[in-house]
Every structure is written in structure tokens, then in C-alpha cells.
Amino acid sequence: MQTSWLRHKGWTYGFRTTVLLYFVILIVLPIAGVYVYSFSEGWAPFWENVSDPIAWKAVLLTLGLALIATLINVLLGTMIAWVLVRYRFPGRTVLNSLVDLPFALPTAVGGLMILLLLGPNSWVGGIAERLGFDIVFHQPAIVIAMVFVTFPFVIRAIQPLLEEMDASAEEASYTLGASRAATFFRVILPQILPGIIGGGMLAFSRALAEFGAVVLVAGNIPAKTLTASVFIYGEVESDNNLGAAAVSVLLLTLSLLLLWFINRVQRRGGRA
């Protein structure tokens, strides 16, 4: 057989080794590397870097702002998913496609857009300034940037649940005389809750990690507007890799726990 070399076992093993190596070198090794590096000089330097007030306040601030952004997105997202699935109105398909825009848009561009719209030279920024409000370079801008970037998550998690929902329970509830609000909270909400939680947690973990949009609109003042990922970038720039790695480990562990939890919620949602 002339083409017997095509059947040679070596091909199979070659492919398998290549893919496994790619997987380990690209994904596993870098993540393990950060943990190893940050503890490479023992616990003491790690602890010193993490207990630096600027560092832990940055992490705490990120957690708080991401939580606010997630709450806003959960409320807006539930409403928008409901309107897009349940109502027919002109422009519905256009809005539905627009939902994904923040995913398609580079985050730096998103940050720039917010900066332009709300910045000191724009009329929104001008009005806010006259009222004694600061938006850009202050915490509200960070929250807006996070809301913008994580906008699609909750909507996209709830939509399929709303579409597949059985109408009979809802109809029964109305027939039995329940009000609209009671039906929503006692019949509909429990059914879309897995989507709200799953989407909300994805949005939260994305908001925690966000860098591009935030770095452009935040003032990056320690303890006030310096988020964790911007802090890490600053440490890398000032050649303090150990400090950057220490805070990375903190943030990374948090994100990994979140990811694990999201997987559990989704698996349970799938089984139910």
C-alpha cells in the first residue's frame, strides 16, 4: 500500500502529544506559574504585599463596585429580557442584536465612549459638575464602565428560560385571581432565577476582572478609584512583579471560586 504512512500510528500520537502540550503550556503552566512565583520567596513577602493598604483597598473597592454594577445589571437585564421576549414592538430585533454590542466592542473603545459622553467637556459632565457631582475619574464612572461591559450576560442568561417557560402555570395563576405582581414574583421569578443568578455571577466575575474600560475612565487614586486590575498593571509597570503577582493570586483565587460556583449552579439548573 502506497499510502500506508498515512495510517502510521505515529500520526495519532503526534497529534495527541501536540494538543496536550499546547493545552498544558498555554493554560495550565501560566496559571500555576503565578501561584508559584508569588510564593517563591516564602509567605512573608507575599503577606507584606497583600497587606499593603493600597493593595487590599484596591481589591475591596473592586469587589464593592462590581457588586453594585452586578445589581444594576440584574435589574436592567431582567426587565430587558422580559420586554424582548414577551412583547412585540417595532425595533425589537434591532435591540436584540444590539445587546451583544459590548461583547463585540473592544473594551478600550467602550471606556473611551463613556469618557467622551460624560467627560468634563461634554454637556452631561458639565451639568453634573454644576450640580456638584463628579462622574468621570470617580467611582460612578467605574460602575458605568462595568455595567456597560457586562450588559449582555444577564439578558442572555434569562432569555432562553423565558422562551421555554410553560405558559400554563402562569395562566392558572391569573385564573385563580392572582395579581400581575403576585404572578411575577411567585410563578415567573422562581423559574428564571437560575438564569438571574448564573448571569449575574458571570457579570460579577467579568466586572471584577475588567481593565480596559475602567483604566480609561477611573482616576486611579489609591483607595478611591484604583481597582485591582489597574493596581496590578501599575505594579508591573514599576517593575514590582512580586507585588503584582501577590494581588493577582488574591483576585485569581476569588475568580476561580466564582467560576467553580457558576459551574455548579449551571449544572444543577441543567438537571432540574
Binding site: F23, I27, V28, L29, P30, I31, G33, V34, Y37, S205, L208, A209, E210, F211, G212, A228, S229, V230, I232, Y233, V236, N241, A244, A245, S248, L251, L252, S255, L256, L258, L259, W260, N263
Partner: peptide, 22 residues
């Protein structure tokens, strides 16, 4: 299968830092 999702959980800045450290 669970490891595949890890890059989702990693902040891009940390992803960059990992490469620099490695």
C-alpha cells in the same frame, strides 16, 4: 473540561503578567 474555562476567570492583565513571569 473545567480547565478550558479558566481563561474566562483570569483578568486580562493577570493573563499578561503570567506570560511575562513565565
Amino acid at each position: 473540561n473545567s480547565i478550558v474555562d479558566l481563561p474566562y476567570a483570569v483578568s486580562p492583565v493577570i493573563g499578561g503578567l503570567m506570560i511575562v513571569l513565565l
